[in-house]
Nucleic acid binder design. Structure first.
Lengths: 210, 210
DNA sequence: GCGGCGATTGACCGACGGGTCAAGGTGCTG
DNA sequence: CAGCACCTTGACCCGTCGGTCAATCGCCGC
């Protein structure tokens, strides 16, 4: 049975990762509910009991998967953003990077959308979005201070709009409702966001990707 | 057991509606998976077996609920749109109406979001969004013809952005991440959409709600 | 070679809940 | 009244699956 106070050996860590990997593959292929714990174990070539040596429940494994992907997304954003650029441009760069990242991990994000949040890790997903929104909001405030964005508009609302746009187009693209190359989609999102944020055509001369 | 070829009496139709209503209440309160068929029957004060007199499966009832709400949403949009207005304004009116409608039925839409699409009526939800998107796209094309919107931009993409915005802000509002009155949110969405759609500040003088 | 601990096994448990069924109304029509 | 179609009941069936457990293995330090 699972306990927190346990010292994993190298082999242990490897096995755990193996289970994580197999789970992700199966989840993305069939969905959370349709994937049995025993399926994961079979895929990893171990007995079912071993699952509960590494994870207290099936949900816990799911949560680890989500957390790990979130971390990678944030890293991808950080890499894509030029810290010396103006805040508006940084927002667009972040948005574009997110679209690209989500496209690169389309199957995982598609799976995420289809996980019923009924009780399962309720809030875990929202929490991630909230953090992201606050980040963008901070940059919106900066941009407002520089009068790149209308200072009368609510920063949190605008930030929410940005991440909503990213989420939506990523979804639309991966579900095949948009069959443009991912670069076009990313650029379109950059344009849409910039256009929605700036009060009038004050963006002349500033390009998202120079 | 359920069969299609059955003639419902008045009492029958009433009973069926009663089950539908109880189901909706319970689904919105606890979620789809957490609501047992027997709970619905208890709430309606009938025996479990009767459920299968009116519905072949639990999923079927769910599908009916979704279809019915979709119909009402479309009616609400149709009512809010001034057919004599220009297409850009009509789009904004439709968007605002949708936000208001979703807020008025917040608990139902919140529930919808949390239904895992794992197999269940997969596509039923997307189908609804697609229809809506095509409607908006048609109006975008109109607006492009009138040069209210940049004709070089992909109409389907823009339309997708509009409904994405509506969906996102409705979600953000009902989940408490935006604690503005619904009117403010609706108006903000109208502004955001218009801003994102028009190429430059060519919207001067046109107000969504005069 | 012994004790201890991590790692591994797979049979087993137990509840849960969707769906079935045979029986029994009730009310209309012929 | 007979026959038929709609309606209602609740005990029962039964597959499914997360989670448990006692037993065993293998490695390492003493």
């Amino acid at each position: 049975m699972y306990t927190t106070d346990r010292q994993l050996t190298d082999q242990g860590r490897e096995r755990k990762q193996q289970l994580l990997d197999c789970a992700q593959t199966l989840f993305t292929a069939r969905g959370y509910g349709a994937t049995r714990v025993v399926d994961i174990c079979d895929a990893a070539g171990v007995a079912k009991g071993l699952f509960y040596w590494y994870f207290p429940t099936k949900e816990t494994l799911f949560a680890e998967l989500v957390r790990s992907m979130r971390l990678r997304l944030r890293r991808a954003q950080a890499e894509a953003i030029d810290p010396t650029a103006d805040p508006l441009t940084r927002i667009c760069q972040g948005a574009e990077a997110s679209v690209r990242f989500m496209a690169a991990h389309a199957s995982f994000f598609a799976f995420l959308e289809n996980v019923g949040v009924e009780g399962i890790v309720a809030g875990l997903l929202n929490e991630g979005r909230d953090v992201h929104t606050r980040d963008v909001a901070a940059q919106v405030v900066e941009a407002q201070a520089l009068h790149l964005i209308d200072p009368d508009e609510d920063a949190a609302l605008l930030a929410s709009g940005v991440i909503g746009t990213v989420t939506h187009f990523s979804h639309a693209h991966r579900s095949g409702r948009i069959d443009l190359p991912i670069d076009s989609v990313a650029l379109f999102v950059g344009r849409w966001v910039r256009q929605a944020l700036v009060p009038e055509s004050s963006s002349r001369g500033i390009l998202t990707t120079p």
